[in-house]
Amino acid sequence: MQWSWSLGRLFGIETRVHASFVLVLLWAVLSSYGGGPAAVIYGLAFLVAVFASVVAHEFGHALTARSYGIATRQILLLPIGGVAQIEGAHMPPREEFMVALAGPVVSFLLSGLFFALSALTGDLSPHSFLGALAWANLGLGAFNLLPAFPMDGGRVFRALLSARMGPLRATEIAAAVGKFAAFGLGAYAIASGRTMMTVVAVFLWFAANGEAGLAARRYSRGTDDPAQWRRTSGFPPRGGRGW
């Protein structure tokens, strides 16, 4: 919280931006500086529009969670994307499945909207502002559906596993798949020289490893039976999760 600034509240949920986001703005300015003031303004406007789309994606998670009576503490914008800090570390499988899918669904809907608007201008290519936003949201939705836990696709995968084998074993399997995917993504990023993708891969590796360790500690003290989740005293535990 000390290293982030509030952007205000929407639907009763505070949205904050991390101080490191300044580096992204600086990168946007430097990368477009050669094109003059107009190029800089265009680059900054597109960056803001993309991260507004990321916020909408996170609100998809947060508002779907609210429909199940689960609160969201805040939405935090980071250089690598957004995080909706939802209360409770685990949900029953059906709820986790729906909450996880909600973000990509919002991204696909936004992509369709921007494709429709760009079609009116006659330019669906990523070289136009609306076309680029359409492709960016399509990529955001598709990328998040990769089964790399703890990304949205990985959480969908865990929800499906949890219904059959309980949250502990499901988390272990989903985390293992997530770390394998992070390793593959990192290898590709290093080979192709994609610095930001390398950072994302490292983040995914540690996040998957951390989720597996957290689940092991939690369920060593409690039940691993999904039917008991809502009946176990103190569950779901407080202390947000990231989407």
Rank of each mutant, 00 (worst) to 15 (best):
T171L: 11
A215F: 03
V17C: 01
F97A: 13
G88R: 14
E211D: 12
R221F: 05
W135F: 14
L7G: 05
L25H: 02
G184D: 12
G43I: 05
S192I: 09
A175C: 09
R230I: 13
G8M: 00
T223I: 03
G112I: 09
L117Q: 09
G131L: 05
I70H: 08
I86P: 07
G141C: 08
V200D: 00
G166L: 03
A102T: 03
L10I: 13
I70R: 08
A39L: 12
A38E: 15
A176G: 13
D224M: 02
V105N: 06
Y68T: 04
S31G: 06
A102V: 08
A159M: 09
A201D: 12
A89F: 14
F114R: 04
S20C: 04
F97V: 11
G139W: 13
G35D: 08
A28F: 02
D152V: 01
W27A: 14
L77C: 04
I173V: 15
V50M: 06
A189M: 10
G239E: 08
T195M: 12
V29F: 10
R169P: 04
V50G: 06
G210T: 13
R66M: 02
A175H: 07
G178I: 02
L76C: 02
V156H: 06
F114G: 09
G193M: 07
G178T: 08
S31L: 13
R169G: 00
A102Q: 06
G34Y: 13
G81H: 07
L30N: 03
R155Q: 11
A65R: 01
M98V: 14
G193H: 09
L140N: 03
A28R: 07
V105C: 06
E87Q: 15
L130K: 10
F206Y: 14
G43M: 02
P147N: 01
V177M: 10
A142V: 15
F46W: 09
F183L: 15
V24A: 11
R9V: 02
T223H: 05
L204W: 04
S107K: 09
V48N: 05
A181Q: 08
I13E: 08
S31C: 08
E172C: 05
V83W: 03
A102P: 07
A89T: 13
A142D: 11
A176N: 11
M165Q: 11
G35P: 04
H90Q: 14
L77Y: 07
T64R: 04
I13V: 11
T72F: 00
L7R: 04
A208S: 13
V29Q: 02
F203R: 03
F46Y: 14
F157T: 02
V200Q: 05
A45I: 01
A38K: 15
T121N: 11
